[in-house]
């Protein structure tokens, strides 16, 4: 089961079953529901922004191990970043999943998000990995308006 272990790594499994980011935050400055109608995954992201900086982020909802862990890892990566930095990281992540050129330097910005590099080998699961990243992208765009 080598290919499976490449995707369902300890890191991903821990984040999907045991995430400290799966909770509600007090007085979020914005929240948004991400939904994948094909599989029924539903993830609600909450965001707290102060002085143009993401000071906290959390999620609730249900989905597969890929979507749950991708959300949790994204939150770890984006927490503490400015809106600008967060948007850049999201852009890099989406580019990586779509197998577009991503430099080594850019990859470093992704933190543990790099764990999803091989998800493009499983086209049926790409949507799961991207769900919360797209939702976060939409949220930040709205905050920026």
């Amino acid at each position: 089961m080598n290919e499976i272990d490449e995707i369902y790594t300890d890191l991903i499994m821990e984040h999907s079953t045991n995430s400290s980011n799966k909770k509600q935050i007090e007085n979020p400055t914005s929240s948004m529901l991400g939904h994948n109608p094909n599989c029924g995954d539903e993830i609600k992201l909450e965001l707290k922004i102060e002085n143009n900086k993401i000071i906290d982020m959390a999620f609730t909802g249900h989905g597969c191990a890929i979507s749950q862990s991708s959300t949790s890892i994204m939150i770890d990566t984006l927490r503490g970043k400015t809106i600008e930095e967060a948007k850049k990281i999201i852009e890099i992540f989406i580019k990586m999943i779509k197998r577009e050129n991503v430099s080594e330097e850019e990859k470093k910005l992704l933190g543990d998000g790099i764990a999803f590099e091989n998800i493009s080998n499983m086209p049926a699961r790409v949507k799961c990995a991207l769900l919360s990243w797209h939702t976060a992208e939409n949220m930040l765009d709205e905050v920026d308006k």
């Binding site: 089961m1 499976i4 995707i7 995954d41 989905g63 597969c64 191990a65 890929i66 699961r125």
Partner: peptide
């Protein structure tokens, strides 16, 4: 119990078993 159907079907697929998961 405790495993999402999408994860089940993905891993079954690695074992050459085609099943449907979802709604």
């Amino acid at each position: 119990n405790g495993v999402h159907p999408h994860d089940v079907s993905t891993i079954l697929d690695f074992n050459g078993i085609c099943i449907r998961s979802g709604n």
